[in-house]
Nucleic acid binder design. Structure first.
Lengths: 212, 212, 212, 212
DNA sequence: CATGAATGAGCATTCATTCAT
DNA sequence: GATGAATGAATGCTCATTCAT
């Protein structure tokens, strides 16, 4: 870790901050370009043009188009994770947490539709990868969510079924929802959509009391 | 066996049946090639090679690579629709029907993983299309499903919520599930998966009796 | 010349006439197709389609696309020659003959614009040929025209310059005229155009009496 | 010699001059290749090979084969116009000017036979264009030529006929001449040819004094 | 460091011609 | 004879990546 507490000496400063800012700028533009054009169709030259820099400069920051793409996906997923974590933080009630996660998740993709495109593109172009970026994220959260579900079960709020089952179904439902939102003509405000999903997932389709 | 009862004019007769068989053969191979390589990477020459025909022959049946791709997607979606319709036919009970649809749907994609790839590729490559093929299929079934849900509500089996809400959530859940199945390392037998989904969607996450 | 005075014996008649008619039909269609599309772009299949026959049939009458093209050019040039010869026939006055030839020539190409295209296409595509078809035609007529010019000189009507000079300039002028007519936006009725050309070529640009 | 008096920003500087030189080099080679092979048959790779550069480089300078072709035609026509204009400049006598234009025109095409091929190819391949490049050039010069002809008429040197008539016939005659020169086996030194054309066009075919 | 000129592998598509029926 | 299914050679164009300046 480089310390920056001391004043630097003479000479050109290694402006790591500037570099970092530049990197993020590039990723922002790249996200838009990839989302709009697809991986193959996206032209690194276009990214450079929009940034007002040379193509070589982009290659200084990212060794290849692929690296640029994955940089964009990672940044997107990281932003999603941060947002969801921040929203869920401090919510002790499992139910409240689940509701909050759903709402935040849908809200995030509503604001960042490009990321949905990136996720689909990742799968379409890099089908060899063992696990897509998104699912790495999902796995990383698994234990935390499972703990919450268990808590809910212990408190008698959540039905006593394997937590994994709940997490999977909820996760798939959300994943399917963002895809459908962006790939079909369906237009529902994400807040109402969150309510709908929460209602069905929480209470089920059946009239109360009836169990399969 | 081709009947030749009618006199025919001079020249080589068209054999519509043979042509249709050939068309389907081509689509079968193309599905595999596209699913394995992606749209851009897929080489029409490879399709021809696998069929043991010339590239020109493929172009006799499909005017372009794009047409070939959409032919494959359409055939897949049509097969899905047929299978699900056939399975659901004759089931009067809304609940039984819903269960059956879910099971058949997951079973179909379990058997035909290539179609999942095709769906994702369609979206990744042809993002300009107003509505992806899959969603045309979903819309086509909407009314039918809504009628069943209403029936279930009238009979007091299904909670009295807008049928649209149920159909959307169930649909998104299934859509998300097949994607997750094929894009993550998760491996669950589709039957158990169907049971899991049915359990959660039918009964909800909450303990019985509790409503939001 | 095949005699058909005697009745033929039994068996299928060698219907040479039908074949000839078919050949001409094909050439007529081919002329239009080549003129409209150019040599490379013209598709033999299109010729067959317009005739309502199979592609193989066209190839029965012409061994190759090239033969088909040259057949069309030859037919066109032959028709031109016939028309011009017929018109000039019986005209003894060299001046009347020259006028008549110019008028007929321009009239022919006015009626048959496709032939102009064919001539240009021949040159554009078959630049290896020693002499284009059109110039074979021009050479074939050279002697005849020269004889007339000489006659005119002897009679004191035509200036005493090498007949070749006159024939070349008149020929080039006509050739340039039909090309210009079809390749530029210039639209002048061919009769007036003939008058213009005749006026200038006959009387020159200078005021009478003045000679270089 | 490139001046570097001004400070420039980082990165490789654009060298507009070099680029222009390169562009012209490419056009020169392309002219030869198109003239020799025709548009369709010409292979951009051959152009690149002859230049000793990669195919992509050619495409850096010209966005398409078509643009390359039209670039070559334009350059040729521009060179023609410059040469003719330069030669005619300062000649006040309408007759001298006309003679000079004819001589220079024929001389130019004698030196640049490739351009004749390009003109014919343009028409053969791009028959949809409203007006071929050559005729744009001809139209551009029309007014200027007409003014000279009028002057000649006023001075009593040129017969009092519509100037348009003279310009058209002379223009068509020249156009027809260059085509004939290159498409037939006729081989006449261009100077003599110019004299022949001038003689006939100026003085006419008829013996002096006789007018139609 | 930044730039952008140069490269060339990679792929869809067309269509003349052949020949089994 | 007639047909049309099959073939495959031929080529324009794109764009990631490199590297001289």
């Amino acid at each position: 870790m480089r310390m920056k507490t001391k004043k630097r000496g003479p000479g050109r400063p290694r402006d790591a901050e500037l570099a970092e800012r530049r990197r993020e700028e590039i990723l922002g533009v790249a996200t838009g370009v990839f989302a709009a054009a697809g991986y193959r169709q996206a032209d690194v030259q276009v990214v450079a043009d929009r940034l007002g820099v040379g193509k070589g400069t982009v290659y200084r920051y990212f060794p290849s188009k692929e690296a640029l793409f994955f940089g964009a996906v990672d940044a997107g997923i990281r932003a999603l994770a941060e947002r969801v974590d921040a929203a869920a933080e401090g919510l002790d009630d499992p139910v409240e947490q689940m509701k909050c996660v759903i709402l935040t998740y849908l809200g995030f993709f509503d604001e960042n539709p490009d990321l949905v495109e990136l996720l689909i593109i990742e799968r379409a172009e890099f089908r060899d990868r063992e696990q897509a970026t998104y699912f790495v994220y999902r796995e990383r959260n698994f234990e935390r969510r499972a703990a919450f579900v268990k808590q809910g079960i212990e408190r008698g709020i959540i039905r006593d079924v394997p937590p994994e089952r709940i997490i999977n179904v909820v996760g798939d439902c959300l994943y399917g929802t963002i895809f459908t939102n962006h790939f079909s003509t369906r237009k529902i405000p994400f807040k109402r959509q969150a309510d709908d999903i929460i209602d069905i997932l929480m209470n089920g389709v059946f009239t109360a009391g009836r169990v399969r």
